[in-house]
Structure formats: C-alpha cells, structure tokens
C-alpha cells in the first residue's frame, strides 16, 4: 500500500506497472508484495471491517432498507423515478449518506442537506452491508487513513487544488449553481470526508483511489484535522469567509466603534 501511494505521488513513477483492472485487485497485490508489519496491520484493520459484515447484518440491513429507503430507491435498490439505483454505490456511499443524515431525504430541494442522522451507526452499517452485497463498490475506509498522521503539506496542496474551489481554502463551504452549495467541512467526521471523496455524493465529483490514492486522501484528512485542531493564530476567524466578512466587520464594528467614540468626544460633558 505504501508502494502504491508513493508511485502515485512521484512524477518518476514508471508507467505500465499498474494493472488497468479493478482497484480491489490492485490493492491486494500491493499488500502482498509490500508485506511488513505496517501493511499487515492495515490488512487486518481492513479485514476487520470486511469480516465484521455477517449474513445477519445484511439481512437486518435489507429490512431497514425495505422500510426506509425502498420507496425511492426500489425494493431491490434498482432505483425508481424518485431515486437512483444503488447498484455499485458501495458501502461507503450508504455510510456517508445515512451517517451524515442526508438520507433519508426530508424534502425535495436543490440538494440534500446534512442533518442529524436518523439511524444508529449499527443500523447504518447494516444497510451499508446490504447495499454492498448487491454489487461491488467503494468500501468504508479503514481506520489507518483517518488518523490524521499523514503529510499535512501535501494534503493542504491537494486540498487547494482539488477541493478549495468549492469548499473554500479553509473548508468553510461555497456556492454552486442553481442553489446548490458545497457544504462547510468543519465538524465533519474524517470517515465521511473520505467516503465523500470516494463516492462523489450528489454533485461532488468522484476522487477514486487511482486519481487520489488512499494515502493522499489521508493527507487531506490530516490537513483538515490540523485546521480543526488549530484555530486561527490571528484570533477569531470571522467564519473564514474572506474579505467580505472582513469588510463587513471593519464597517460595522470597526467604524461603528470609531463613530461611537466621535459621538462621545463631541458630546458636551454634563
């Protein structure tokens, strides 16, 4: 896995070494060839999430799905006019959409807003397992990528190039066309950030593991964690909205304070 990411990361990577076949196959090959304790650890971590999926979970998930999702997505998740097919969206997609409260949809609108999650983590995982059992898709990421111990510099650079134009450099969010928006990233769990990148929910583009490797995603998460843990050294950040909020602050509070002082100065003493 290390090797895979470093290959993606450096410009000197030799072409043709990577099979054009499916992602999963490549990751397994990578793990087998690299070996080592770290890789072993990560493979067990990955194995844990996969082995944790049991037949009973899939069945529970199916029941929950039939009760809560089937109206729009169809009884077999084949999709209806109201909602897309869920074949191949993977466990990551379900875990993201349900885990952030975006699904089930509360009302029709330009896009599904995040809101308090309707299901417990256990129920969410069950539904994810069910949907994943229908057709292969992106899996819920393993813990190792969510630690925030990657390269913050590269993460920040990748974030600026791939994410900042919609989500703003400080992750404060931004506007899209026709009433849609890129949400703020503050307070979003790392696992959901990762899943969003892999699955491309709603209008967000997909950043699969071949265009941005899992290691690089971990770097991005590292940067976001850094932002979360280190409030602005300059003081209150005024929402990180840039010059507009600064300008409003300067006018309303700055100049407002100045005008208040001028009134005090010019007022006759009692």
């Amino acid at each position: 896995m290390r090797q895979l990411s470093s290959k993606n990361r450096t410009a000197s990577a030799r072409p043709g070494r990577r099979s054009p076949l499916a992602t999963v196959a490549l990751i397994i090959v990578g793990l087998m060839t690299t070996g080592g304790a770290y890789a072993m650890f990560s493979s067990t971590a990955a194995a844990e999430t996969t082995t944790a999926v049991t037949q009973s979970m899939v069945e529970d998930g199916q029941k929950l799905f039939a009760a809560n999702c089937a109206t729009c997505h169809g009884l077999d998740a084949e999709g209806t006019k109201a909602g897309p097919s869920l074949y191949g969206v993977g466990a990551a997609s379900v875990h993201f959409q349900v885990g952030t409260g975006r699904m089930p949809l509360a009302a029709n609108g330009p896009q599904a807003p995040d809101k308090p999650a309707q299901f417990t983590e256990e129920q969410t995982l069950a539904m994810a397992a069910y949907v994943a059992s229908l057709a292969p898709g992106p899996d819920i990421p393993s813990e190792e990528y969510l630690q925030g111990d990657g390269d913050a510099t590269l993460g920040a650079e990748l974030f600026r190039i791939n994410c900042a134009m919609c989500h703003n450099v400080a992750g404060a969010g931004g506007a899209l066309t026709e009433g849609k928006y890129a949400p703020s990233l503050s307070g979003v769990e790392s696992v959901h950030v990762y899943e969003a990148m892999v699955t491309g929910p709603q209008n967000m583009p997909v950043f699969n593991d071949l265009t941005i490797s899992p290691e690089e995603k971990a770097d991005i998460i590292t940067y976001l964690k850094y932002l979360e843990e280190n409030p602005s050294p300059g003081g209150f950040d005024l929402g990180n909205l840039g010059p507009v909020s600064e300008g409003l602050f300067a006018w309303i509070f700055g100049l407002g304070a100045m005008v208040a002082v001028t009134i005090w100065i010019a007022a006759k003493a009692s």
Binding site: A156, E157, R160, I161, A164, M165, C166, H167, N168, V169, A170, A172, G173, G174, A175, A182, L227, S232, P233, G234, G235, F236, D237, L238, N240, L241, G242, P243, V244, E246, G247, L248, F249, A250, W251
Partner: peptide
Amino acid sequence: FFTINPIWAYGPYDPSPVSAGTQPDWYIG
C-alpha cells in the same frame, strides 16, 4: 483578536487552484 487575511490558509499563489468565495477587499468589491 480578529484574524484578517489568513494567508497561511490561502497558501502560496499557484495558477491552478482557487478558493470558493474569492473576493477582493471591500473597497474593490
């Protein structure tokens, strides 16, 4: 007490990236 122009968040200039909410200071607005 109030951050202004957090250049560390913006990062160095690079012609490829851009941030949502790219605006000039208010007087050029």
